[in-house]
Design a binder for these strands. Structure first.
Length: 462
RNA sequence: GGCCCCAUCGUCUAGCGGUUAGGAUCCAUGGUUUUCAUCCAUGUUACAGGAGUUCAAGUCUCCUUGGGGUCACCA
């Protein structure tokens, strides 16, 4: 059975790049009817926070990616890791290193001036003398000293890392707490993970983890290292480039469907297809089609996708989501009409909310240019007449087509063009020259409000 | 700097030795729409450079260049 996992460290929010690797992992599991596990990597007590872990879980909830089983917290498994540390110590596969931080720093500096790769020199690897006093030792694992560490990466292909690139790295700190590369290998093995899908930045951790797998006699999973997502300039994605926190996208009015669709196409493709429902992603996803190269974050495309999903979202669901943006349309008796009239002109829920408010709130000011252009003297007369006509037909006006018919008859009897009434009417109703169709707007507002807005405009605009 | 990875329109990508190098987005133009948006149509734009291998190279090899990752008692 395919078992994948996402293993964030709770040092902050869920990063947009993290969401993509999580999505790939989740899709792999779903596609193969396997399991997708969540593990919180909180071995560094100084850095992690509970709030961060909560925030990450919340983000998963928002996008609708559910995990199987309980969330695993590494901080609760220290006893387990201790067993393996002792085992390696007893077997002579790991050893205590009494080097102080100062000594280590000095060694690094020396190596740097010689332009060498900085690495631990193994001075305590075969040490059997009297340990120095006052130093609580770290535990280091014995990495191979020659040859290569070989593995096949599902994305990158065959990898050969020279053993000289991997030093005897620390598996337990001076205070006994285990370190990342050690516990990742143990947990992935113990949790039965078969497919490790993670960011490119972990590529160099893989040989280290393989050292642990080998020392403990665990079977290797398949590794898949996905290239990074960069900003629009091709540089590392940072907060200055816009939102990196997944939940910021929620706040900006993006739909989870759009975000996921956007992310899945970053580094993965299925021919020419651009639009993928979650179900389609699951059936079509194949890690073999993951790209080797990094990709750039591109807001235009995300916006386009978001607009697409808004347009195709059932109104009832839209209304529900709009609540978070200060718009309550669920009680409005013309909700369907209102959303139909506006959903095609909002690329985000924020913009959609603006469009709705534009219709729902009586204009208090009128766009100057619009007034100049549309509100000529004859326009006022025409508007006044039109208001009278509306009022006289009050009981017959309900649907947009009713209003449309009335307008048609009106311009015909007056022998004027549509533009003569259309523009001034629009400015009266919305205060601006752009917006939804007039028929729809009037139907949403009803005769009373429509007439009131016309009268208001006639009074206000000189 | 050492090691490793990557390289097709501005961006996301298709391509897996023989294609007029395709799609999407963006941009521009036209059409639909009383406006705007949507929608539809059309158009501009790409194989980083150089050597090889081959009858044939975007596709294979090497070099150069450019970009990225990584070198912790962080994850």
């Amino acid at each position: 059975m395919t078992v994948t996992r996402f293993a964030p460290s709770p040092t902050g929010y869920l990063h947009i790049g993290g969401l993509r690797t999580a999505l790939f992992s989740w899709l792999s599991a779903q596609h193969n009817k396997g399991r997708f596990l969540l593990r919180i990597e909180d071995t560094d007590m100084a850095r992690n926070s509970e709030e961060a872990a909560e925030a990450i879980l919340k983000a998963f909830e928002w996008v609708g990616m559910s995990h199987d089983g309980e969330v695993v917290y590494q901080s609760k498994r220290f006893d387990l890791y201790k067993v393996y540390i002792d085992q390696l110590l007893a077997e002579g596969k790991a050893y205590k290193c009494y080097m102080s931080k100062e000594e280590l720093d000095a060694l690094r500096e020396e190596q740097m001036t010689r332009k060498e790769r900085t690495r631990y020199d193994g001075r305590y690897r075969d040490f059997d003398g009297i340990p120095p006093e006052g130093v609580s030792p770290v535990i280091r694992i014995k990495a191979p000293q020659e040859g290569v560490i070989y593995f096949v990466d599902g994305v990158k292909g065959e990898m050969n890392i020279a053993a000289s690139e991997v030093d005897d790295f620390v598996i337990a700190r001076g205070d006994g707490a285990p370190t990342y590369n050690f516990v990742v290998a143990i947990d992935d093995a113990l949790m039965g993970v078969t497919e490790v899908i993670r960011g490119d930045d972990h590529l160099y951790n893989t040989p280290k983890q393989i050292v642990v797998y080998n020392a403990l006699g665990f079977a290797l999973p398949n590794f898949n290292h996905v290239a990074m997502i960069n900003n629009e300039q091709g540089k590392k994605l940072s907060k200055r480039d816009g939102a990196t926190d997944v939940m910021e996208y929620k706040a900006m009015g993006y739909l989870p469907e759009a975000l996921l669709n956007f992310l899945v196409r970053l580094g993965w493709s299925h021919g020419d297809q651009e639009i993928f429902s979650l179900e389609e992603m699951v059936t079509l996803f194949d890690p073999a089609h993951i790209n080797k190269s990094s990709s750039n974050f591109n807001l235009d495309k995300l916006l386009w996708l978001n607009a697409h999903y808004i347009k195709n979202m059932p109104n009832s669901k839209l209304a529900e989501m709009l609540e978070a943006f200060g718009v309550d349309v669920q009680g409005h008796d013309r909700m369907e009409l209102l959303l139909d009239a506006t959903k095609e002109r909002g690329k985000t829920l924020v913009e959609l909310a603006e469009q709705i408010n534009l219709i729902l709130s009586t204009p208090t000011q009128y766009d100057e240019k619009a007034v100049q252009k549309a509100f000529k003297e004859d326009a006022k007369v025409i508007l006044g007449d039109f208001a009278l006509v509306l009022q006289s037909q009050k009981d017959a006006l309900h649907l947009p087509c009713d209003y449309h018919k009335t307008m048609e008859v009106f311009v015909e009897t007056k022998a004027i063009g549509f533009g003569k009434i259309g523009m001034p009417l629009r400015v009266s109703l919305l205060g601006s020259m752009t917006g939804s169709g007039l028929d729809e707007i009037m139907a949403i507002l009803g005769v009373e409000e429509t007439v009131s807005r016309i009268e208001n405009a006639l009074k206000t605009i000189q």
